[in-house]
Nucleic acid binder design. Structure first.
Lengths: 169, 169
DNA sequence: AATAACCGATACAACCTGTATCGCCAAGTT
DNA sequence: AACTTGGCGATACAGGTTGTATCGGTTATT
């Protein structure tokens, strides 16, 4: 049932997660939809909750792990669900305060693997924040604001540049 | 009249730019609103068009100019209109294809000053893209996804790090 | 067998959307 | 001065959406 809702989200975008639209697309009664998910945000939260979160093994080499995470995130953004989630989260947060918190949590979860990957490198916390932001943010902006395939190569260059210069410093 | 619409956007968010809502808030007849701006995207485009775009003089020193641009962008994001525009653009682009193009143009315009600032530095085009993305994207993500005051200090550190390492390389 | 929990169907008032139509008033024309 | 044009406000309309409430039927639970 939620899988049908996910289909709908991917095809028609985050604005389609309304009771009526879900009813028409999934065949589930409108009453039932209201019972379980009072707001579109609830639907989205359920979808996010169901979405698979692949756990990735760390090699121990921060640079190598960071590159791997870049690839993984690019793939996830390209393969839609994550990108669609983000767009929908921004859209809903415009009207529903509850979506704001959900959005922050989701972004944190997206970024978390990078923090883990950099855990091996012996860096001050602030540096970790900076590096993660510089590497991940452009990917998110590409997917969210520019609608172009995420600049995978750029992200890899950023990893090299940041981690290289930090190790040198 | 558009000023009233801008007020509305800032207070109630991008979802409030609907004909009905505009009618109630501005007193302008619903007919008239439909006549001029058929879609919320049109309203937003008009607001963006009216918004002041301060032109900034370049000192010639890329690093100094970049820092100045970081400050300027942080201020604009903090003072709301720009941030509200971005949120609204993402929201509308979810349903209206016309908003996608508008959004891309707007982001390009936001980024343009940084490109100008870096024009003085003798850098290959790809490097310019990388630097700009690394500096600007975190600011946009902060404002758009995390809802926290843009990390001004981080952006300044990024300028130093990127421009410093590039000059050294 | 009785009860509770869940689902679907229907109904309802309130609202929003898009479009069309009408009368009004001001600006400019001849 | 009479006329025309253009833009605005007001109203009406059908169609769709939203939340909520209510009722009957089905399935598990005990």
């Amino acid at each position: 049932m939620l899988t049908a809702a996910l289909e709908l989200l991917l095809v028609e975008g985050g604005a389609a997660l309304t009771p009526q639209r879900l009813h028409q697309a999934t065949g589930v009664s409108r009453s039932t939809i209201y019972r379980h998910w009072a707001t579109p945000t609830d639907v989205l939260a359920a979808l996010i909750d169901v979405a698979p979160t692949a756990r990735r093994a760390l090699s121990g080499d921060p640079v190598k792990d960071a590159h791997a995470e870049v690839d993984a995130l690019c793939n996830r953004l390209r393969d839609k669900p994550v990108g669609a989630f983000l767009q929908a989260l921004v859209t809903m947060a415009a009207t529903d305060p509850a979506a704001v918190e959900l959005r922050q949590r989701y972004v944190d979860d997206l970024v978390a693997p990078f923090r883990r990957a950099l855990g091996g490198a012996d860096l001050p916390r602030q540096r970790v924040d900076d590096v993660v932001a510089a590497i991940v943010s452009p990917l998110l902006v590409d997917a969210l604001l520019l609608d172009r395939p995420t600049a995978r190569a750029r992200a890899h260059r950023a990893v090299d540049l940041y981690l290289g210069s930090l190790q040198a410093g």
